[in-house]
Amino acid sequence: MRIILLLLSIALVSVAEAAEYAVVVARNSPIEALDSERLRDIFLRRRSFEGNIPLVPVNLLGEEAVRTQFESQVLQMDRGQINQYWVTSHFQGIKPPATQASLQSIKTFIERVDGAIGYLPISMVDDGLKVLHEF
């Protein structure tokens, strides 16, 4: 089982290397760039503001590849660790980020909600969005 997981992670890393996804915000967002550390804090709700700007992270619902890759590469946690994290955080009054059921709705969410930050395939990034990080 460990062998399989190991093999799988290797494979994923290899995909990430291709930089298919990007962390994006709305075009009009004052945020220009965020490093992995910052992204990790934001999506784990350890950080709610970037400067004076409230941040609204949004996850893709389910176990889509983009999310899995985001969690492994940006958050550097597998699903078990994440679940564990949110169970613990829940008792501290910290709720996980909002979710959307589709990539399209994530895109719309980011465009419409101030401070929204999410991840999308690079292919979906258009003029309305601003890429902060790729992975």
């Binding site: 909002a98 979710t99 959307q100 059921a101 589709s102 399209q104 709705s105 719309t108 969410f109 419409r112 909600v113």
Partner: peptide, 11 residues
């Protein structure tokens, strides 16, 4: 929250 997206996913 999907109100914000116009309930795109019809959830």
């Amino acid at each position: 929250n999907d109100v914000l997206t116009g309930d795109l996913d019809r959830r």
